[in-house]
């Protein structure tokens, strides 16, 4: 029983951490976007993701039942406790890098939420139903930018082509279950992510073709570990900035 609850908690934290870390990353663009409209777009997407994350954290805090709040979970856990996908913590790079990372994630996010909204857990299903509308909108935006940059000038094409290749290694993690995910999939408590890979590849390729970009997914180095707390060096820096206030002034409130 205790183990089952742990798995469920892990899953909620994984969903929450993934959306929050990507939201935090995108918010670094605020005030620095290439043009005003896209600066605003990045901040809007960040806000949607942070909103989604806070809903999951709330459920996780309730499940944990130790009187903790969503803020405790976001601001007072250590690097090894975070279960976000590695792709979400990777640095923003240039605009094309951010777009490539976002595009891979958005297509996955839409497919995942589409399954999650059928979840037997009505609270998780409600968050997924709500967030799916937003994620679909994000996917349109990032797909459009992949096409615009890929099928744009020679320079934009070369830059986004490199970005698209750079993030391939981090995409397999979306579809490779951890041990605790395998248990949840077996009991029907989370969607079988292994079945999403083909749909994801089809949708991604559809956009890449339109964008005159190419990628060979079989060359992926399949970097995984984020869901089990094994992160790249980038995460610590994000947490240092994000958690600074709460750790320096414990229990502070806005």
């Amino acid at each position: 029983m205790e183990n089952t609850e742990n798995n469920q908690l892990n899953y909620l934290l994984h969903l929450a951490d993934t959306s929050m870390i990507l939201g935090q990353r995108l918010s670094e663009w605020c005030g620095k976007g290439p043009v005003l409209e896209q600066d605003i777009a990045l901040s809007n997407i960040a806000l949607d993701l942070l909103g989604e994350a806070s809903h999951y954290y709330e459920l996780a805090a309730n499940l944990q039942g130790e009187g903790k709040t969503e803020d405790d979970l976001a601001f007072l856990r250590n690097e090894r406790d975070f279960k976000n996908l590695l792709i979400t913590e990777r640095p923003n790079g240039h605009f094309g890098d951010t777009i490539a990372r976002q595009f891979y994630f958005d297509i996955y996010h839409v497919l995942l939420l589409n399954e999650l909204k059928k979840s037997s857990n009505s609270e998780t299903a409600a968050i997924a139903e709500k967030s799916l509308k937003e994620a679909t909108y994000h996917a349109k935006w990032s797909s459009e930018w992949v096409i615009r940059l890929g099928d744009g000038t020679e320079e934009s094409h070369d830059k986004i082509q490199k970005s698209i290749l750079d993030f391939v290694d981090y995409t397999d993690e979306m579809f490779i279950p951890t041990n605790w995910e395998k248990a949840l999939i077996a009991s029907g408590e989370m969607p079988d992510i292994t079945t999403l890979k083909d749909k994801w590849t089809t949708r991604v390729n559809q956009v890449l073709e339109e964008a005159t970009l190419t990628v060979d997914f079989s060359k992926s180095r399949k970097l995984i570990g984020g869901k089990d707390g094994k992160h790249t060096e980038a995460l610590g820096y994000i947490l240092a900035e994000m958690q600074y206030m709460q750790r320096t002034y414990p229990n502070m409130e806005w």
């Binding site: 409209e37 679909t136 339109e210």
Partner: peptide, 28 residues
Amino acid sequence: QDDLFAKPDEVPCPHCGSGHTKLVSQFG
């Protein structure tokens, strides 16, 4: 809503009523 290549909504101008408008940015 799932169609990634769907054309943006055709929106009449609230000022002059013209249907001849274009999407500048998906996010406002």
